[in-house]
């Protein structure tokens, strides 16, 4: 018999339902929703007027994760490779035949996705042009016309498996995180691992000597220290370009990557101490 801890309440169920529906919610959006639910669920709390802080949401997420672990689901926090925005993602941690067979996509559609995935992972830039993507229909069995392919690509974008920008097709952070085990095992020779965070990286900063690929948000953390290091963490080659690469990206100030939105928590410390 399943036992759910007593601190798992309606608030957690509602938060989970939203993530199941949207699969991918930006950290800011998630926090806004969390505050709204928190206030409607716990009106008796003395501190309700002060509102929850991001730490409360992170605690709630870890409570949810303990409960859904047995269903091979997990809410992960990850940072987008291009915009440095943080997201909460609901992922299946095990590739189950149930979620595969009864997904919103047919077997043929999933076959198309697999081809696109393979093209993206084996590409040099971690993305392919939309035109190349639409031409993939010819390599597939069945009679997919160009306009079928176009509609299908849009469907995958709508469900956030892929996204299109400036004529390029990319994997979303949701796909990267969820498919990480699959990509690592099937494309071992192609896939890049960021040496700074040890996770998969599709797009980022490439060292022009050893060709190591690093996440921009990792490079940002790596270079922002007082001594402004700008040598490649892999081959130690001097990489003055590194600083320029992350200069114009809107990272949050005080971002430390491990603890999301540290800055917004700091803003709340006044209220936090008042709660004690």
């Amino acid at each position: 018999m399943l036992r759910v801890p007593s601190n798992y309440r309606d608030l957690h169920k509602r938060f989970l339902q939203i993530l199941m529906n949207r699969r991918m919610v930006s950290y800011e959006d998630a926090f806004r929703l969390f505050c709204k639910m928190y206030q409607s669920e716990e009106p008796d709390e003395e501190e309700a007027t002060a509102g929850p802080c991001p730490k409360d949401m992170e605690l709630a997420v870890s409570i949810i994760n303990k409960v859904i672990k047995g269903l091979n689901m997990e809410i992960r926090c990850a940072q987008d490779e291009i915009t440095p925005a943080k997201y909460y993602l609901l992922v299946n941690t095990v590739d189950s035949h149930i979620s595969r067979t009864f997904s919103k996509f047919s077997a043929a559609e999933l076959e198309f996705f697999k081809t696109v995935l393979s093209e993206i992972v084996t590409s040099e830039d971690g993305c392919i042009s939309s035109t190349a993507c639409l031409n993939l229909n010819s390599s597939l069995p069945g009679n997919m016309t160009k306009s079928d392919t176009e509609a299908l690509l849009e469907k995958f974008c709508k469900y956030q498996w892929l996204y299109q920008k400036d004529g390029k097709v990319h994997l979303t952070i949701l796909s990267i995180v969820e498919l990480e085990p699959l990509i690592l095992s099937a494309y071992e020779d192609y896939v890049n691992i960021c040496r700074l965070c040890k996770r998969i990286v599709m797009q980022g900063y490439r060292c022009d000597r050893c060709l190591a690929l690093l996440h921009l948000h990792c490079v940002h953390l790596y270079t922002k220290g007082v001594d402004r290091i700008h040598s490649c963490p892999v081959c130690s080659a001097d990489q003055p370009e590194m600083l320029a690469a992350v200069k114009n990206i809107p990272f949050h100030s005080g971002d430390d990557n491990r603890i999301p939105s540290a800055s917004s928590r700091e803003n709340k410390t006044g209220k936090g101490s008042a709660r004690k």
Binding site: D10, K13, R14, Q17, I18, N21, R22, L33, K36, M37
Partner: peptide, 16 residues
């Protein structure tokens, strides 16, 4: 059947 109380969140959900 979903919890009727949860349908308050419906505007925060995304549907086709």
């Amino acid at each position: 059947v979903n919890n009727e109380q949860f349908l308050r969140d419906v505007s925060d959900l995304k549907w086709p």
